[in-house]
Simulated scan of single mutants.
Amino acid sequence: MNRTTLLMATFVLAGASVVAIPDVSAQGRVRGHAVVHTGDGGRTAVTGAAARGDRGSYERGHRVDSDGQGNVSGRSGAYAAGADGGTAQRQGSFYRNADGSAGRQGSASVNGPNGGNATTSGSIARDASGNVNGNRSTSATGQNGNTYNGSTTVQNGTVTHTGTCTNAAGETIACRGN
């Protein structure tokens, strides 16, 4: 692997994080992309971007690796902050193997400027025989203190969901849409 290209790829991912928190008076955006071809027929590709302006800032990046044998994996992440104080972030990863197995996992969260917040995380995988299993958990709290906690699972084609809503006092209440 070419060292200069690898250093450039590292800069693209690291640079997005550094540039997203510039001097308060600085405004603008930066983007970068690099691809490295490996000796075994694989590739590594990285992309990053960041911006800051009157309405807030963001940074995001992703990386994908392949080995030339049909195996691919990657990861990504993003963060945004609004001028009003709200923030959101996400991260995830995936893989696909030459035998047909594949999977993905990810999480995300958001914090509203007035006190509400939500988080979610989950994963799903398919084995080489085609069996799919996964889960996702989600929780949210409104600025008034009402909460939602839910979980969804899929196992061998069967999907199951549970969800509970409570008020600020911790009493169970009807969830909207139920």
Rank of each mutant, 00 (worst) to 15 (best):
A26Y: 06
Q155S: 15
L7C: 02
A20K: 01
G70S: 09
S17G: 07
Y79M: 01
H62Y: 13
L7G: 08
S93T: 13
A34M: 11
M8T: 15
V35D: 03
S137I: 00
T120E: 10
G74N: 00
G85F: 06
G42M: 03
A16G: 13
Q105T: 10
G163F: 00
R136D: 10
S121P: 07
N131A: 15
N114R: 15
A78D: 09
G61W: 07
S109P: 02
R96E: 06
G142M: 00
S66T: 15
A80P: 01
T147I: 12
Q27K: 13
V36D: 09
S139Q: 14
S93R: 09
C165R: 07
N149D: 14
N114H: 12
R29T: 10
A174F: 04
A118I: 12
G41V: 12
A140D: 01
Y95K: 08
S93F: 00
A125I: 11
G53A: 05
P22E: 05
G74P: 13
N156S: 14
A50W: 01
A102C: 01
A102K: 03
A125T: 15
H161Q: 15
G68W: 11
G68N: 10
V19Q: 14
V46E: 04
G163S: 14
S93C: 04
G82F: 04
R126H: 04
Q91Y: 02
D127F: 07
L6G: 07
R90V: 03
S17N: 09
A78K: 08
A45C: 05
H37T: 14
I124R: 13
T5I: 06
V35E: 13
A78T: 10
G150Y: 09
A78P: 04
G130F: 05
T10V: 08
T5L: 12
N135I: 09
A49W: 01
R75I: 03
G41T: 00
T172I: 06
E59W: 01
T147D: 07
G56F: 03
N71P: 02
Y95R: 09
S121C: 07
N146S: 08
N97L: 04
G77T: 00
V19S: 12
A78L: 05
A49Y: 01
L7F: 05
G68M: 03
G56C: 00
A102L: 09
V132C: 10
T87Q: 06
S109T: 07
R90N: 03
Q143T: 09
D54K: 11
N114S: 15
G100K: 08
Q105F: 01
G53F: 02
R63C: 11
V35F: 00
I21C: 02
L6Q: 08
G142N: 12
G100F: 04
V19K: 04
A14V: 06
T120P: 00
R96M: 06
T162W: 04
G116F: 11
A20E: 13
P22V: 06
G115M: 11
T138D: 13
N156T: 02
G142K: 10
E171N: 14
G85R: 05
G92S: 09
G103H: 03
D23P: 07
T141K: 05
T147Y: 01
G150Q: 04
M1A: 13
D127R: 06
G77Y: 01
R52T: 08
A168R: 12
R126D: 03
A88K: 07
C165K: 07
A125W: 05
